[in-house]
Design a protein around this nucleic acid. Structure first.
Length: 573
RNA sequence: CGGGACGUGGCGAAGCUUGGUAUCGCGCUUGCUUUGGGAGCAAGAUGCCGCAGGUUCAAAUCCUGUCGUCCCGACCA
């Protein structure tokens, strides 16, 4: 490819709408163009990187027996009514009507379509297990796109679905897929991706892992520990050790206008962990309340609460006067009709706390949950704390870090095969529901993630395996006959050797050329100019600055080819 | 859905408070010079100032509405 013919342009200024490095550099470098909120077009360099990532994904999916298929983007709503998700999923699902007035959806994930595809085609136990995958467009009407390609509404995703006749078989395959995912991220040049336990969310199913790239621009919080523990903060167990403090008597005291934990701490001169607070939730505005009691220094982990209750919940919005808000406590709480009261495990073993007296202007001091009647039932509902106790090693060593979710894997179970009546006959001729797993990777997000981790001030530093081109020839003063001839010759020979070459044949200044080259991030750069030719050489530079040297004209092709080959293997194992 | 910011040539911005000929830099075109980290000079092209109403002799500027984008939060398979 000659750079003079490449569609797109590169520029100096930081676009006003961009905040994070990958978004800035990929916009400035002519990889992507924003079309609407969370919707992007790719210019050729972006498309080439995406294709290389997809190639790696295909190789790894094929290596674990995957069969590539293609499912539709647009589906009749009936499929989604079958699975129940037409009602269960909210407005992230893009719905529309066709010309006949029939409800249609844009696929945000393809469990329905894949079950539809497979249910007639795998009716015998002998067809199992199998895995199918596709690389295709998803549309999710996210409430808020952000960070360039990190969180978008339309994106290319590899989604895979496996079908099994036993939980053991699913688990064994899940492990193979986990390994394949490690291979994919490593080969794409980000071996630092870690897998963490995660919440199954609306996918259903119990076991799930997310593959996370730890970086400050990530949207998820991870709880990690030097002992090797790592989990999405959403599922990380919060372990609280309460000190065996004194067992003071329960006593009601006047606390006018003390409605926050901060107020109480100031008033009594105590720390937040010596208080017990109430947090209120409900499903919808008029539904029954869910009251969660927990230690005052902690926050409710709403994902845990949702999983416990098995339904959506939102912070409660109370009409005035229903409850003495600011003065709620477990002792003598008069719960409204149908309310659910739940105690967080942080109250277990706690003593001598300050908590609301359920009466405007009064709190109890000397509250000991177990003695004073919260009951003995506790649930893990709090967010894990920075510096909290690690569930794996037991030390106060938990760190919270941010990460980008570049992939995920779920053990789905029979949720979709049951709801959509996909069955096979087992050895005994009995109809059974296959057990499913599903496995996703966002291609564009992966591309942006690599850029986040592999860039410098001047542009991306693409790993060879996914770089848009392998070698970038800069012909400085290409109109010089000697330079032009040498550059053209090298370009042709390298291309014939199977190398992907970008040839900057433009008549622009050296600085301009180098800046563009930096933004295009091609790992190997060859500079040809009257200067280099005068000393009988080309100049060889790597984008990561590891190599900068002259190479003799005669050895150039061999040396460049060898370097490309070496770099291709950089992240192979 | 709450809170905030912003829509002015392809890109980045100024102008708006206090209405009066559309401004600067980058990029683009042509020519000459230059030639190893975004070169210099000269001449050019490119705007329904997001859109729609309103106020006014006159609106990029004031008012109302609307559409869109970004950021924080809520949400997120």
């Amino acid at each position: 490819m000659k750079l003079s013919e490449l569609l797109g342009f590169r520029f100096k200024e930081t676009p006003s709408d961009c905040q994070i490095a990958s978004h800035i550099l990929m916009t400035r470098g002519g990889y992507i163009k924003n079309v609407g909120s969370g919707i992007f077009s790719l210019y050729p360099p972006g498309k080439r990187i995406a294709q290389k990532i997809e190639r790696i994904i295909r190789e790894e999916m094929d290596a674990i027996g995957g069969q590539e298929v293609l499912l539709p983007v647009t589906m009749p709503a009936g499929l989604w009514k079958e699975s129940g998700r037409w009602d269960a999923v909210g407005s992230e699902l893009m719905r529309m009507k066709d010309r006949w007035g029939s409800d249609m959806v844009l696929g945000m994930t393809h469990e329905e379509a894949v079950v539809h595809l497979c249910r007639g085609a795998a009716q015998s136990y002998q067809n199992y297990p199998f895995m199918v995958y596709q690389i295709q467009t998803k549309f999710r009407d996210e409430p808020r796109a952000r960070g360039g390609l990190i969180r978008v509404r339309e994106f290319t995703m590899k989604d895979a679905y496996s079908f099994h006749t036993s939980q053991e078989d699913l688990e064994a395959y899940y492990a193979r897929c986990h390994k394949a995912y490690e291979n994919i991220f490593r080969r794409c040049g980000i071996p630092e991706v870690v897998s963490v336990k995660s919440d199954g969310g609306m996918m259903g199913g119990k076991v799930a892992h997310e593959f996370m790239l730890v970086t400050e621009v990530g949207e998820d919080y991870l709880a990690v520990c030097d002992c090797g523990f790592s989990a999405n903060m959403e599922v990380a167990e919060s372990i609280i050790e309460n000190k065996a403090g004194e067992d003071a008597p329960l006593e009601k005291v006047s606390t006018p206008d003390m409605t926050t934990i901060e107020d109480l701490c100031g008033f009594f001169g105590i720390a937040p962990e010596q208080t017990c607070k109430a947090v209120l939730y409900q499903k919808n505005a008029d539904d029954a309340l869910v009251v969660v009691f927990l230690r005052g220094d902690l926050e409710v982990n709403e994902v845990k609460l949702r999983n416990l209750l098995g339904e959506e919940i939102h912070p409660a919005v109370l009409e005035g006067g229903e409850l003495p808000c600011g003065y709620l406590g477990p002792v003598g709480l008069k719960t409204p009709k149908g309310a659910i009261v739940i105690n967080d495990s942080s109250l277990k073993g706690a003593r001598n706390l300050v908590t609301g007296a359920n009466e405007e202007g009064y709190h109890f001091i000397g509250f000991s949950p177990e003695r004073d009647g919260t009951g003995s039932k506790y649930n893990d509902l709090a967010k894990i704390l920075e510096g909290g106790i690690c569930p794996q090693c037991g030390e106060h060593s938990v760190k919270l870090v941010r990460g980008i979710e570049v992939g995920n894997i779920f053990q789905l179970g029979t949720k979709y095969t049951k709801s959509m009546e996909m069955t096979y006959l087992d050895q005994n001729g009995k109809a059974r529901y296959p057990i499913m797993g599903c496995y996703g990777i966002g291609v564009g997000r992966l591309m942006a993630s690599v850029c986040e981790v592999r860039h410098d001030d001047y542009g991306p530093v693409w790993p060879m395996a996914i770089a848009p081109w392998q070698v970038h020839i800069c012909a400085i003063r290409a109109e010089n006959e000697e330079v032009g001839a040498a550059a053209n010759a090298l370009y042709n020979v390298l291309q014939n050797a199977g190398i992907e070459v970008l040839f900057d044949d433009r008549k622009v200044s050296a600085g301009f050329m180098f800046s563009d080259a930096d933004l295009l991030g091609v790992p190997v750069r060859v500079i040809i100019s009257p200067k280099t030719l005068a000393r009988g050489a080309f100049e060889l530079r790597t984008r990561d600055k590891a190599i900068q040297k002259d190479i003799a004209l005669d050895d150039a092709v061999d040396e460049i080819t060898a370097l490309v080959k070496e770099r291709m293997g950089e992240f192979e194992s």
